[in-house]
């Protein structure tokens, strides 16, 4: 049996949201709430992951699919150790790195500062950063905007830079959160190549994507989540994806009956 790299053991994650209460948020309602001995003001618990277990092995590339809000990104954050578990545990062989485009850095600082600070926070030395700085900036393709504050960036530019920073390091466990959905066609090709490289070096890759063809092309296993639970998981990538599409009312994929490859795909994903 291959060596396990990530073990998720009956994991539960709960977000606490403040200010989500139904009252009008006035001083009088707050007073009545205190008099009425109700608990914390307008606090709501969102049970994002409701008990999940699986094991990932070295060499696995695991696609995580599911509709918005099903807990995909939360699962990745929990694996990366960025979010505390309410119950259960995630065991990892080493620190996992989350490659996300939603990772906002410091909006009022320039792109250049963000590159340096992001790399420092990831634990790189100043020398390493100096070596990699220009390749990060080139990769992100933000060009001369690198000297402007990040809040002036378009959302595509911002996420490209964030991805470039996060991808500057090699990882053993790699968590990729919808990285390929951002940017223009050219950037998608570049980032796809970078992920392939990282995958070759990494022991285990998790890929969250709405792009099911991407999952089909890159993953040997799939976990299908819905409402914080695993609906199905296994190595039958194509079968699970087809059932997921079925269940969510999507358009059926035309497949070759023998090879089960897509017929209608107009272009390979890595083109």
């Amino acid at each position: 049996m291959a060596e396990p790299t990530v073990i998720v053991d009956s994991l539960e994650v709960v977000y606490r949201v403040y200010g989500a209460g139904g009252d009008r948020g006035t001083a009088s309602t707050a007073l009545f709430r205190i008099i009425g001995r109700k608990t914390r003001p307008a606090i709501r618990e969102v049970h994002a992951i409701k008990g999940m277990s699986f094991v990932a092995y070295r060499g696995d590339a695991i696609g995580i699919i599911g509709r918005n809000g099903s807990g995909k990104s939360t699962l990745l954050r929990a694996i990366a150790g960025l979010l505390p578990a309410e119950k259960g545990t995630v065991y990892t062989i080493c620190d996992a790195s989350l490659l996300g485009v939603n990772a906002a850095l410091l909006e009022d600082l320039t792109g250049e500062r963000n590159v340096v600070l992001g790399c420092l926070a990831m634990g790189m030395t100043k020398k390493e950063i100096k070596e990699k700085y220009s390749s990060i900036v080139d990769f992100s393709g933000v060009g001369e905007f690198i000297n402007l504050p990040m809040k002036t960036y378009s959302s595509g530019m911002g996420s490209r830079l964030r991805f470039a920073i996060a991808a500057a390091k090699d990882y053993e466990i790699l968590l990729i959160d919808e990285a390929l959905a951002t940017g223009d066609a050219e950037f998608r090709v570049k980032s796809h190549e970078r992920i392939e490289q990282l995958r070759d070096k990494a022991g285990t890759v998790f890929l969250v994507a709405h792009d099911l063809e991407e999952v089909e092309d890159t993953c040997n296993r799939v976990i299908w989540l819905d409402a914080g639970k695993i609906i199905e998981q296994g190595e039958d990538v194509i079968g699970i994806i087809d059932r997921y599409i079925d269940a969510s009312g999507g358009e059926k994929v035309a497949r070759d009956p023998v090879t089960r490859k897509r017929i209608s795909a107009p272009e390979p994903a890595s083109a």
Binding site: R77, A80, G81, L82, L83, D95, S97, L98, G100, N102, A103, A104, L105, L106, G118, A121, M122, G123, R162, A166
Partner: peptide, 9 residues
């Protein structure tokens, strides 16, 4: 919080 949820340090 965004930084904390993005990077481990």
């Amino acid at each position: 919080l965004p930084l904390i949820r993005a990077l481990k340090f």
